[in-house]
Nucleic acid binder design. Structure first.
Length: 603
RNA sequence: GGGGCCGUAGUUCAGCUGGUUAGAAUGCCUGACUGUCGAUCAGGAGGUCGCGAGUUCGAGUCUCGUCGGCCCCGCCA
């Protein structure tokens, strides 16, 4: 039961509501009269003295209400509960010696209250604001307007605002034009599932919400906007993950008369500025950013977006096992397969039981098995110990660059090299978690270049672009890409950080003939080309300049820079994993009348 | 589409191999208290154990289904 029903909010506040914010107060002189407004954060009622921490957007300040405060101030203050909305008039007083609070910016002063108005009460709070006790995701989404008052959440909102502001400043300084592109757009084949919007005027036809402004940005530079940028919402109707949202925000930009490295430099300038200004307490792995080829990363880390904050580098051990009698490895080698592994120095040293668990982890990642060799001070243990001579072990340790001392060697084998690398790469991350190797104060930004243009889609028997089909191949492959696609490398470049892909960018194709040929190659015939992409192809034929661009995601940037575990935390109003807004209850049913106007009948 | 974890007081959680009246902390209510800042002290209220079936003498606990949340695989150029 709350007493709130018996307290009527004041309808006669002093206007304007406040003369100062709490952050102003420390600089004001003692005795100054101020008018403040905000939420009651915490209340400490001593019967005589009452202390209330007042929270406004800029901080906290302690209010002090004595029994001899004017009028009924003391009686009113005694009723106040956390999250009630208050206006107070008072004077700045120094706190008595010994009662200062060093953890508060206003900790040396307090407000001696002469008048207090209750602007509103909070009758029904599902959870506490001042108390940062974790709440369930259900609560977090349904009562987001309360969660947002928590400092832990509010600081992310402020951080994101600062980031976007700096992004705009950066692009304005560099002469980019900020241009908005349509939200009601066109469904295109390939890629993710579209979010569709039915048309009322064209019954049976649908707009699609943009997965990205990809075509519009190219058409803008073709239209003479040499440097374009936009903070763009992008929507994909695919299942979500901890690092993936239904709708997300990209810093979308495109430039003409540039080569790949010009775009990379522009992006790198932005990222370095954001990192140095927003997270000065964190270290960059390298500045300027290191560049890796796709192949090198796959071979060394088993991923095209590896976490570079730690080592655990993968090495090819195939040749060392050519003589071994261990049948599993032998047959793999005889069939042209590969054996790869990495070394994890102790600590931690994994027990037999933990090794069995890790084998289970490896299997869950899709590995066919895991061979481990645990090296102690004197001896070593392994399920294949009887096949391992001291000499072989020494050469193995040498191969995986194991420093002298204890540690564990993990090996995987298989026929398809990149599949083994992929599994081992994921397993590498699992080990890094258990070994606590992910330094939260390190930002391992890096570039990935020289991606293959295509991979062969065995299920659909066709070439599939690694990025998208508007990417320009590297110059030396332009003449051969259509006749010998698979060896082609592209101008695609990714920026990665701490195991996440931050963005993909590239030079774009600006010749119609090449663009048309690539479309043909991925299975889009002339008729479909005209129907879906006629506008773009004609635009390329209208004097399209060389151009390219990239689009880093705001959500992931905020997540990585702040070290948050989920992208959901970076947006003001997140949805559940299934894409439901538990607060607004959307998606929702609509009136029959609305459906009729759209020519839609539900099945 | 598939796998896993979770759902118990307003909130965060505990609750063993099934066994009397389901607990703790915090919040809330009442009272006391003039230097607290997670105020303190005393007392009190508060639960359809997500929902529905089933097994059982007996279900918060076991089984099946269902709803909801989260993580992962698939998917996401």
């Amino acid at each position: 039961m709350s007493t709130s029903v018996t307290v009527k909010p004041s309808l006669n506040p002093l206007l304007p509501y406040r003369t100062h914010y709490s952050s102003d107060l420390a600089a004001l002189s003692v005795g100054a009269e101020v008018r403040l407004a905000g939420w009651a954060h915490r209340c400490r009622d001593h019967g005589g003295l009452i202390f209330i921490d007042l929270r406004d957007p800029r901080g906290l300040v302690q209010l002090r209400i004595t029994p001899d405060a004017p009028g009924d101030s003391h009686d009113i203050a005694a009723k106040v509960r956390p999250e009630w909305v208050l206006q107070v008039v008072g004077v700045i007083k120094p706190r008595p010696e010994g009662t200062e609070n060093p953890s508060l910016a206003t900790g040396k002063i307090e407000i001696e209250v002469s008048r207090i108005e209750i602007l509103n009460v909070a009758a029904d709070m599902p959870f506490d604001v001042a108390d940062e006790t974790p709440i369930t995701e259900q609560q977090n989404i349904e009562f987001r307007y309360i969660a947002l008052r928590r400092e832990s959440v509010a600081k992310v909102v402020r951080f994101r605002h600062e980031l976007v502001r700096m992004v705009r400043e950066y692009f304005y300084e560099n002469n980019f034009l900020e241009v908005e592109t349509p939200l009601l757009s066109k469904s295109t084949p390939e890629g993710a599932r579209d979010c569709l919007v039915p048309s009322r005027v064209f019954p049976g036809k649908f707009y699609a919400l943009p997965q990205s402004p990809q075509q519009y940005k190219q058409l803008l530079v073709i239209g003479g906007v040499e440097r374009y940028f936009q903070i763009a919402r992008c929507l994909r109707d695919e299942d979500t993950r901890a690092d993936r949202l239904l709708e997300h925000t990209q810093i979308d930009f495109e430039m003409s008369y540039v080569q790949r490295d010009d775009i990379m430099n522009m992006l790198e300038g932005l990222i370095i500025r954001l990192v140095t200004k927003l997270t000065p307490e964190k270290r960059l792995l390298s500045n300027p950013l290191q560049r890796f080829t796709y192949r090198e990363l796959m071979d060394r880390f088993g991923s095209d977006k590896p976490d570079l904050r730690f080592g655990l580098e993968i090495r090819d051990c195939t040749d060392l096992f050519s003589e071994i009698e261990f049948q599993v490895f032998r047959s793999v080698i005889e069939k042209g397969g590969t054996i790869r592994g990495f070394w994890c120095p102790a600590p931690p040293s994994f027990s037999r039981k933990e090794m069995d668990e890790l084998t289970g982890v490896a299997m869950e990642l899709g590995a066919e098995g895991l061979v481990w060799i645990s090296c102690g001070a004197e001896d070593f243990s392994s399920p294949i110990k009887r096949f391992l001579s001291p000499d072989l072990l020494a050469r193995l340790r040498d191969r995986v660059e194991a420093a002298p001392g204890e540690g564990s060697l993990f090996l995987m084998a298989g026929q398809v090299h990149d599949t083994v690398l992929d599994r081992l790469g994921r397993f590498r991350v699992k080990i890094s978690e258990r070994a606590n190797l992910q330094d939260p104060n390190l930002l391992a930004f890096a570039y990935v270049i020289d991606f293959p243009y295509f991979f062969w889609d065995e299920d659909n028997k066709r070439y599939d672009p690694c990025h998208h089909m508007f990417v320009m191949p590297k110059r030396e492959y332009i003449n051969t890409v259509l006749t010998d696609p698979l060896p082609t490398l592209s101008t695609q470049f990714d920026m990665i950080c701490n195991g996440y892909e931050m963005c993909s960018g590239s030079e774009r194709i600006h010749f119609r003939r090449l663009q048309s040929g690539i479309m043909q190659l991925v299975g889009i015939g002339p008729e479909e080309q005209e129907e879906k992409f006629g506008h773009l192809l004609r635009a390329l034929d209208s004097g399209a300049p060389p151009h390219g661009g990239v689009a880093p995601g705001v959500d992931r940037l905020v997540m990585v820079l702040m070290g948050l575990p989920f992208v959901r935390d970076t947006i003001a109003f997140p949805k559940s994993q299934r894409g439901e807004d538990l607060m607004m209850k959307s998606p929702s049913h609509v009136d029959e009348q609305q459906l009729r106007e759209l020519g839609i009948k539900l099945r």
